[in-house]
Design a binder for these strands. Structure first.
Lengths: 206, 206
DNA sequence: TGCCGATTTGACCATCTGGTTGAAATTGCG
DNA sequence: CGCAATTTCAACCAGATGGTCAAATCGGCA
């Protein structure tokens, strides 16, 4: 129940184990989904016994919740960085590259998120309707302004953002399909980086 | 073991029940994933008892396999219809609209497929590397020819196809997120239809 | 109508799974 | 070193889950 770490926390072991558990859980949850994952599986990957793991996180849900909680911020940061005062095309293109880079570096996080959304976002719906919608609306307003000023092509701002999400996350979430179709001798993310650069430059040109 | 329907199959009841089971299983599997779904759940949705359901399909895996088997064809048909002798831009745009229409009409199938890919495609990897890759390579060659002839912009054909998949499936697989962000008073698919039309026309313009 | 295979089901089973417990091992610290 | 707090885990538990089976019911046809 208690989290430990009252007064002088035995931070050494606690930090290491909590980290190991979350890393293992991310690996397992992102591959098999919440219900498809078992505590034994996670404990095994984390190198702990199941009771020991439950000593740090009280339940399977608690582990999953902790992962999801950290996720949305990581997810939104690249969009937050989109600067209304910057050059429109450059800002948007930079956002595309940042998002693709995140797909490349954190595919497990991407798949965890995808799993959650696919199942109807039961645990983060409120965050979608709140935090996410607010940020997107704010940035969409910026995009609309840029469009009105003829600095980018006139496009529905929300769908422009969706297209960035769809195209970048596809390379993380559908990685196995991309690789299966491309076959050997390809670097999917490098190729995607160039392709998406071209795509959005053509799309945004006024 | 036997499929029934030897000689004069009692096709009436068999057909109805198999259909009910597959429909229910699609609904449940696409929402909760394979391991996240239970036979009781599926049987309940199908309006049958669990043993009765297992009378028609020997196991949970058998039901899932049957669904996946039918899926790939439905998935590839729109791409097959891309005509090398047609007008390049018109053919590709038509493909985009067909694919989006399928996302709209068959979101459950889309999510079932997405679930499978997300988990590493353990059950359809061979189909991806075989049937799917073959078809994509064939159509990619057509796209490359069109590009070489300057009838469309020069773009990496495989990634062009990926972009169509990513953008259309996004509206099915991430439907709840799209709706959460857009809020009330939107018709996501209608807006997507117009947006993707614009996007690909600009992208493909030589 | 009565027969026979097709269909349906209640009861049951072995295994898996999330979670608990109590006691032992380890650790940090005065 | 000694000891209290922290950490670890073998053994266990209750409920869920995939699957089985024998018996009951149904449906069409001779």
């Amino acid at each position: 129940m208690a989290e430990g770490q009252q007064k002088t926390g035995t931070t050494r072991i606690q930090a290491r184990n909590r980290e190991a558990i979350l890393t293992a859980a991310l690996e397992v949850f992102s591959t098999f989904g919440f219900r498809g994952s078992t505590l034994d599986q996670i404990a095994d990957v984390a190198g702990l016994s199941k009771p020991n793991m439950l000593y740090y996180f009280g339940s399977k849900d608690a582990i999953h919740a902790e992962l999801l909680a950290g996720l949305l911020d990581t997810w939104l940061d690249p969009l937050r960085a989109l600067d209304p005062k910057g050059d429109p095309v450059a800002e948007i293109i930079a956002y595309v590259h940042r998002k693709l880079e995140i797909s490349r570096l954190y595919p497990r996080e991407s798949r965890l998120f995808a799993n959650e959304i696919l199942q109807g976002a039961p645990r983060i719906m409120s965050a979608l309707e709140g935090e996410l919608k607010a940020l997107v609306d704010e940035k969409a307003a910026v995009l609309k302004l840029w469009a009105d000023e003829r600095r980018i092509a006139p496009l529905p701002p929300h769908h422009l953002i969706f297209s960035i999400w769809a195209l970048t996350q596809h390379y993380a979430d559908f990685d196995v399909q991309v690789r299966a179709v491309l076959g050997e001798g390809h670097d999917p993310f490098a190729e995607a980086d160039a392709f998406l650069d071209t795509l959005f430059r053509k799309l945004l040109a006024p």
